[in-house]
Design a protein around this nucleic acid. Sequence first.
DNA 1: GCGTCCAGGTCTACC
DNA 2: GGTAGACCTGGACGC
Length: 290
Amino acid sequence: MFNFWRTVYSHGWCSLPPFLVNKEDSTLSRLLELKNGTLVLSVLKERKGKISVTFSSQAALSADQKAEVRNLLAQCLRVNEDFSEFYREAVRHPGSRWIPKAGAGRLLRSPTVFEDVVKMICTTNCSWSLTETMVGNLTARLGKNFGAGNFSFPGPESMAGTTEAFLRKNVRTGYRSPYLLEFATAVADGKLDVEGWRSSPLSTDELFEQVKTVKGMGDYAAGNLLKLLGRYDYLGLDSWVRGKYYEFHSHGRKVKDSTIEKRYASLGKWRGLFFWLEMTRYWYDHKFPF
DNA sequence: GCGTCCAGGTCTACC
DNA sequence: GGTAGACCTGGACGC
């Protein structure tokens, strides 16, 4: 089962550019950059359980380019991933039977792993509003301009071509700036193949350690990036989700991370997804939870 | 309006 | 392996 709006609002990515939710006409738009550099603004709308996509581009799209757009959007929405095993596991637990009914579980991701890593670093050690500022500045300062306020997400070459001082002053990424620069340079130079992580043969623990070799990606960021790679073995604890756990399970009282981890350990390789969905279940009462 | 304090993950140095 | 302190920004608060 696939639920469009539950996927869009699976976490905060939908409110970071180049994603944009338009609540007035109930659409999700996303500016994409194709392999040959063509910019395509795609607007997705759900009608009677089916998703329609309209394209705008500076030149007419070939059939292959339209297929490329559809493939990128499918990657973002995870429509081709098989969640049947997860749903079978969910119905074994009374508290999780709502998950398959709601069509929950797919976590929105970016067209590229590069973008997901950059955004994840921009969520660390700051408020959500600062994350929005950093990502907004990245697109507006380094992305390609499609017009009408739409900018693409910058590629590794674009970011690698900047300086630490530029990132600090204009993007407001602060002490993360040298981390972002080092990461973008490694990807641009071909020394780090992050796009291969989505199909990596490594075990999840090995991949977790590899992700953490990127400076700025610690336990929280790597654990959550793995969820966007289709691996759910890590909880990805941060202050917000810890607070939710305390609220739901310990009357607001702090508990050790190890206590949280023990509670979900029996859920095996899906525990990170069960945990996240439980903490955000109340979002599912609203079409636009934030 | 200005200064101070604090929250938020990760890194590094040190034990 | 565990821990303290530094990193940077923006919001809250007091004056």
